[in-house]
Design a protein around this nucleic acid. Structure first.
Lengths: 233, 233
DNA sequence: TGCCGCTAAAGTGCATGCACTTCACGCAGG
DNA sequence: CCTGCGTGAAGTGCATGCACTTTAGCGGCA
């Protein structure tokens, strides 16, 4: 529902490209995204680039301030916590809808994905982060609920952003085993266990990600100061 | 985060206006929204109108098909069910965050809102639907979680759309009393009871809204046929 | 040296123009 | 009377242009 997979849809293309760049941390939080550069890079006019930025902004991935260059958002620590809270609720819902109802083909699909995750385990961490995220989106898509897919995608992308901000350098090799366990439990049909598993899985991720701010975590000054700046108005 | 309350932000203005028009059912599902008409009506160029439509589309309120006039979405019955499911989860989360933590000023604010609902009870049903919806959004906003606010707003708006499609003519005078009960329980701090109340409140709304399609519910042919059309591709 | 103000360059906000697509109406044929 | 088709009108997709805002860097002044 965000935008169709229509190959002619240029703004959709750009959105996907940028989302992917962001999720793989090729574009770090705070990176500037000037309309013309984008347009030039993708071979379209500013108009289109602008439209794409609008989309991404509505997904919470870029920040759009009037008369200012768009930037990749820098989620606050509080934002991050909120997002994880919501994510847990939504993914529990997904698990509830899915437990015991997956067709063999779907199970196979999931296992194939996890295999890909394992394969990428020793590769660049950007890829494994992306795959881990896509696992959750894949799961969501099996509910056949476009709305759920959209929200979980959005949230999962934003969690990636958060990870690149707050998480310890090498915590990214997050629970592939947990993914496997979830698939198995889903297949077995034990709703409660599946929900608990998903809950603790996400809890793990959140814990790895959300090491308490401990102010000067190498991040840009302006980000560190953001909360204080809020006080002044 | 969707768009700032900046008064200079024309596309934000148009979005708000259209959202409100949709929520009050001045624009029914299926209504066409040509860019130029919109632009003319709001005194801006097509460019801006177009941008606004893009926003609304990403919120799931309008449908945007390539080279075709944008229309107010016509949610399918299944969509409606999904949306209510998600809504329940999110609002339960809200209640959990809020129970026992509301400041007196916030309680007062809520009660004032309910009073307004009561006042509008005998007025046009469009207004009371809007107020009922805004009650939930107000609640969400008290969590101070922008993401939560955004999602609940979006979902609530879409529920309104659904209502105008599926609900019986005069079911709109939905539980003002239930709103009051929720406020009271929230104040008392009984998390479980508050969650149960909210759950049943939404369940009520959903039941009133989602009378099983029973095919020819006066709706347009094309809508009835939509699911069958899906089979063909 | 260090700081402040000024100015050109870079960037955004928005409207308009042109090419292409879809839509709606009327007309011919069954 | 209904159906199928062709054509102009209506509408979208996209690029470009101009006015205004922000930014960054330079030169003057302390």
């Amino acid at each position: 529902m965000p935008e169709s997979p229509n190959p002619k849809d240029k703004v959709g293309m750009i959105c996907r490209a940028l989302r992917r760049a962001i999720i793989e941390q090729a574009l770090e939080p705070g990176t500037k995204l000037p309309e013309d550069s984008l347009g030039e890079r993708f071979g379209v006019s500013r108009t289109i680039a602008r439209h794409a930025l609008g989309q991404l902004a509505s997904e919470g991935l870029v920040e759009l301030r009037r008369n200012r260059i768009a930037v990749v958002v820098t989620p606050s620590w509080q934002d991050a916590r909120d997002i994880f809270d919501i994510r847990m609720e939504l993914e529990r819902l997904i698990v509830r809808k899915l437990a015991g109802k997956l067709k063999p083909a779907q199970i196979a699909r999931l296992k194939a994905h996890v295999a890909a995750e394992q394969e990428a385990h020793d590769g660049p961490s950007a890829v494994s982060i992306r795959l881990a995220t896509e696992f959750h989106i894949l799961l969501a898509s099996m509910t056949n609920s476009p709305v759920l897919v959209r929200y979980v995608s959005e949230i999962a992308y934003r969690c990636c952003l958060t990870l690149s901000l707050f998480s310890r350098p090498h915590s990214s090799e997050c629970g592939i085993n947990e993914h496997i366990a979830i698939i198995d439990t889903l297949q077995s049909g034990d709703v409660d266990k599946a929900m608990a598993l998903m809950h603790s899985h996400l809890g793990e991720v959140a814990n790895r990600a959300l090491v308490e701010p401990s102010p000067a975590r190498g991040r840009d000054l302006v980000d560190v100061l953001a909360p204080y700046a809020d006080e002044t108005r």
